[in-house]
Design a protein around this nucleic acid. Sequence first.
RNA 1: GGGCCCGUAGCUCAGCCUGGAUAGAGCGACGGCCUUCGGAGCCGUAGGUCGCGGGUUCAAAUCCCGCCGGGCCCGCCA
Length: 725
Amino acid sequence: MVRYILEIVKKVLLNELEKAIKKNFSVLPRNIEISYPKDRNLGDIATSVAFQLAYLEIKNKKKAREAVNKYAAQITSELQLSKIPYISELRVVNGYINGYLQYDRFTRDVIKNILELGESYGAREKKGKKVVIEHTSANPIHPLHVGTARNSILGDSIARIYRFIGYDIERRFYVNDVGKQVAYLVYAYSKIKDKVNISGKPDHWFGSLYSLANAIIEVTKGLITIESLKRDLIQQILKKRVKYEASKNELEALLIKLYKIERYSAIDWIKTLNSIINAIKEEKAIESIDKEIKENITKLHEALEITVKWLRILSDLTLRWPTLSKLVLRELINENDIERKISELMRKYESGQDRDVNNLFHDVCRNVLEGIKETLSKVDIEFDRFDWESELVRSGIVSRIINELSRRGWVIEDENGAKILNIKEACKLEDIRRIFDMKEFKPDTLPPNLVLIRSDGTTLYTTRDIAYAVLKGSDETVEKVFNVIGKDQELPQKQLKAALYLAGYKNIAKKITHVSYELVILPGEKLSARRGRYVTFDEIIDEAIERALEEIRKRRRDLSQKEQEDIAKAVGVGAVKYALISVAPEKIITFDWARVINFEQNSGPFLQYSYARATSILRKINYDLPDPDQVRYEVLKNDVEKDLIFNLARFPEIILESSRKIRPDIIADYANKISILFNSFYQRYPVLKAETEDIRKARLLLVEAFRVILRNAMNLLGIKPIEKM
RNA sequence: GGGCCCGUAGCUCAGCCUGGAUAGAGCGACGGCCUUCGGAGCCGUAGGUCGCGGGUUCAAAUCCCGCCGGGCCCGCCA
């Protein structure tokens, strides 16, 4: 077991405190707190145990308060300083017991420890256990955007952290090639593929096609609904012979107009539909109108509004991609029965029987996936495997689990033949309630049931994900499975866990953690690939690199073009990664360019800059460092130096905290903090031209120790340490 | 209607899990620092009823309850 110095200090101090208290007092406070005072003058390490003890021992509060100092002193006098390593003095202040580090020895051992262990400083021993991290898993129908980017960066960093603390890791990308959304795209592509070439980056091209297809299909669906509602309404109006002749006629006239809509012009659609909406609004205001008619008018009104919304989106998209949209509109707009055809397509692909359909789906998804991989490689994010959903379905695991659930009586069938997991009933079990954070069975607040199989026999995303969970977690060496998925999918993730329990995979369910993060939103509206409303990850990376390049050109004319570009790449990517990872996952990020291309303090480039500065000192001496055994560490006695050393010593516990909480932002925050300290040190104290040779040697080693720690921290964040910038 | 999350300085956020000393950063504002190793930097000033109200406690930004404001989810989409 690797032990780090600060951890030893804390552990021994805790033991000694307990011993001292047991010896003198009848009670032992639980959870004795060891903290680090904010003010260095108050000491390096502290405990408030005397407060706890006094109030436990003395009933009278006032007397207890008065006794705190006495208790603290009593405990302190009982502690044997010689037994606590690195602590040179204990003082009682305001009831606290404050310990002062013996900085010469502490510094020596910390620095030697860091230099010796190097890149494994802060790491833990191999556990021989595996952690599976599923992240990104973006639908293979559009490019990665700023939202999925947060997922990728977070997931990748978590993988790095868990590898660092001794786990074998397996990073998995779930390729969602089954499902309605993919079918939409494939359907659209099948209609136009002979008439067009894929141009540009394939994920971008297909992403555009997907948004267009989706909008057209939504509009078509809306129009069909409107048609039928309209027919009903006209009949009703005629049958009831409403007395408001004028308005009736006006309404009819408007409704009839629908038949005459110029089908290729979105603008006309919007105009006409808007005028109908307005007319209907007026109709609604007429009180004496028949109730049934009123209801139908309301329905029509809603359908119209939704359709108009999609039309607006479609018209926006048309402006963005005029050529492609012309083609797609022509091919798709006259199709009827689209829903049925898409359903058919899905069914065929799930079964895997139809070769042409298989090829079509594969063709589309592989293309998009290539684009996604290219984006990810720009930011150094890799996967160990890509799991195709279609293969999962065809492997039979999905149906096996459903059979298992049925056999155990958890599946009910509705009137249309859909198969539904009876979660409400299952909530009578305590295990299931625990998943949904329910203390007791309350019939009115039960979580919703989960449809496992559609009435047409196809599966749903969550159903397939249940099977995937079994695949990820069944290996005995797998200790944890992290699903890095947005907060908006909290419910399906819980349902999935419940399904695993109910199907008899309790042990797998226990391994699964939903690593939840909040979404990235654009100022104004939520990102949506379906609506074509997104900023692509590629755009962001390219822009950030561009900006970094401008900065470098201003500052480093001495470097070659190639060097400048390499640095710009690292800096731009570092800026983007830091921006998306430095915020706690449960916080919504509002996308804004200033955040992403921040090169000042509290940014990726600031870490890189600090690293480069430290490196440039050592470069000047050809990295020829003094022998750590021949250095007098006690000369590092300035506050900033001590602060830096102390914080470097904290690195291992920071890593543990970050991994326990699954929060890389803690490491980002830490890296920023030690960089601030280093820059402060750098500004104030010369290293190469230090006052004496002893100081010079000691500072050189401090700089190197800082580099090791910062490099380790940056590697965990996936931000490249660079030696020049 | 039910469930989850967020609310801390003008803005963006740490700190809350595990209660403890004058609540911390960055950006922005204002004022300084280039004859010393890289100014993407450093030093300083101003700026806070920790959303509101109760409760628990010697002690509450932190724990509990209620409310207010914002977001998300409750689909035979993913």
